[in-house]
Design a protein around this nucleic acid. Structure first.
Ligand SMILES: [Mn+2]
Ligand SMILES: [Mn+2]
Ligand SMILES: [Zn+2]
Ligand SMILES: [Zn+2]
Lengths: 141, 141
DNA sequence: GAAAAATTTGAATTTAATATAATTTTTAAA
DNA sequence: TTTAAAAATTATATTAAATTCAAATTTTTC
């Protein structure tokens, strides 16, 4: 997100803090994650401001709402077209920038006008593999 | 879902009604959709039973929980590997059985053990296109 | 047929998201 | 600079989906 893109949004300290947090991490945070992180440096921050800001950024096309998690929305401030790699254990989300050719055959169109696609890869992340490994060690006896 | 697969689940009337509803439609219903449909024929049905049953079927691998919609879970009783085509207007979900080769290059693995993938195609369905069309007609004057 | 186990039910609780209204801050006009 | 209007923030209230709970009911086992 570059400043020129948010030129038409009023740049309040709260909003800048939220944007800065979104920019500075790649974890695809939930609204609660954003609130927690930002309210540390900004104790008066309200949850409503987080939602308002996320909504405004979404409207402007500067933020993407992910439906990867059931139960809560997660946000991605990288608006370039890309896919995701999701850990089925801890739900960490990594970016995948490989471009795949996904031609849907005519007979699968169901009468739709197709406008895009998104691939979710599923797996177990490095951290969770290590935890699993040490669990096995512990359970051996 | 075939009976032999639910042999180890106690087949109560409520559960059979829920399973029958899931089988008989392809709309990828939400828990509320299931509750509404089944409680018509089964007025004493409790919401908790719907959730309990969906959870049990999920555990047995007979039902897949979709995170396609932010805000609520949707369920798919077709457990064959397949992808989805989603209308961005009305959120109707259609099945896509084309098999895509999605080889993730080594440098995008992020240390993961990859176990699968899923493609969401986005578009506008026939119904919504028609509604849009008639909206345009109305707005012409 | 009685005891144990499993399921259903309605109500209560939790969590995420949204809406509201009063206050504060920012912007723009006079 | 003062003042009025507009916009944003805040705390609180409300809503919606999901989950938990304990009592009542049904099913299974002995
Ligand atoms: Mn991303
Ligand atoms: Mn499906
Ligand atoms: Zn993980
Ligand atoms: Zn549609």
């Amino acid at each position: 997100m570059i400043l020129s893109e948010i030129a038409d949004i009023k740049q309040t300290p709260q909003r800048l803090a939220i944007i800065e947090y979104l920019e500075s991490n790649k974890v695809h945070p939930s609204a609660l994650d954003v609130y927690k992180a930002v309210s540390e440096r900004f104790p008066t921050m309200s949850f409503a401001t987080v939602y308002n800001t996320l909504e405004k950024l979404k409207e402007k096309g500067l933020l993407i709402e992910l439906s990867i998690d059931t139960g809560k929305k997660r946000f991605d401030c990288d608006t370039r077209p890309h896919h995701h790699l999701i850990c089925v254990k801890c739900r960490e989300i990594f970016d995948v920038f490989t471009d795949f050719i996904l031609e849907l055959p005519e007979d699968e169109f169901h009468g739709f006008d197709i406008i895009g696609n998104h691939v979710d890869f599923y797996g177990i992340c490095k951290k969770c593999k290590e935890i699993e490994g040490s669990d096995l060690e512990l359970n051996k006896d």
